[in-house]
Design a protein around this nucleic acid. Structure first.
Lengths: 188, 188
DNA sequence: TTATTTACGCTACCGCCGTAGCGTAAATGC
DNA sequence: GCATTTACGCTACGGCGGTAGCGTAAATAA
């Protein structure tokens, strides 16, 4: 088949495991490529044959650790949206802020990293967009503004608080965002 | 008065000027402390006696370059808000994205840097908050949501697009955000 | 078996941020 | 004048991310 010496398939897993431990201990900043390679029992050059940069390694690591959000849309778009936004807020605030910020910085520097990072959040944001569109069709959202904008106004403030103002992301805050975008619930 | 050899007051200005040139050429990442010191004709240690890190140097530089937003609130809160949000969006998108992202990352790592960075945006965000509160008092905004949340939903999406989704910040987008938060204008 | 191709380990290196230590310059207090 | 204090320049260093080059190991093709 392929010509030369095959890649040692066990190495990638060992590197990711070593990187996970490093990330857990010292965050993005404290993760040292040299230590990851040493911990995995591998030369640093071997690591760089798999990922082109520290950022790409970390993105691959996060992608490998990530579990899907189990989300089943119900007949209650308002409740669904609340669940989603609260879940996203919880996920963000349980992740070290500096990690999110460093990924954003790496994304800004390297478009390829940016693509990978956006793919990490894509499922969550896609789910929110779908539910918002559904709510709008059902007449629950009165606004005629494009769903993408409403999503930005639900999710954007979470990142804004996290990365810019440093304020906490509480479930209450997420629910307040919801209220503000959807308007008060009509009593039936 | 003070006992020892006095600081050379000219050095700080030369360092900031050198840093500005470096930042202009290569952005945050391309700004090298060694080169800044060399360009200013000063030892690197002298630079570190003034700012504790590259991040603090850059924050001080931006603070020194920053001009106030000339903003005079009129009797038209809706127009004022539009102006403010469009201006903020323009300012953000005219700044290199990586600079904003790197400042956010530095803020997450070092709380002192975070304080300084937040102070950079404070005037803009304060102005927005003031106008939003005024609009709410005037009954222009129907929502009873706290002004701070509305501000987050006006400004947060800008940072969100810039740092996370990578979408452009057009004046139209800013106006759409406004529309979504304030609701459609009532015809008089 | 032999040539070729690819992977791996190793060493050395570059530029980077940030720190330590030391000699010296410039000010004040006596 | 003289001790003290602070600023400055300089050198050296450590750890970092990332790259280049080389010898060698492991596979395939002939």
């Amino acid at each position: 088949m392929t010509r030369g010496r095959p890649r040692d398939t066990a190495i990638e897993g060992r590197l990711l495991a070593a990187a996970a431990e490093e990330l857990r201990r010292g965050g993005y900043e404290g993760l040292s490529i040299d230590r990851v390679a040493e911990r995995a029992g591998v030369a640093k050059t071997t690591l760089y044959r798999r990922w082109a940069s520290k950022a790409e390694l970390v993105v691959a690591l996060i992608a490998s650790m990530r579990e899907e959000i189990p989300f089943e849309p119900s007949d209650d778009p308002r409740g669904d949206l609340t669940t989603l936004v609260v879940t996203i807020a919880a996920g963000l605030s349980s992740t070290p802020t500096s990690l999110i910020a460093d990924l954003a910085a790496a994304s800004a520097r390297d478009p390829r990293v940016g693509e990978s990072v956006r793919a990490l959040w894509a499922d969550r944001h896609g789910a929110v967009t779908a539910v918002v569109a559904k709510a709008q069709q059902a007449g629950i959202v009165l606004s005629h503004v494009a769903p993408a904008v409403l999503v930005d106004q639900l999710v954007g403030p979470l990142y804004y608080r996290l990365l810019v103002t440093g304020e906490p992301l509480t479930p209450d805050y997420a629910r307040t965002l919801m209220l503000s975008v959807l308007g008060p619930e009509e009593s039936p």
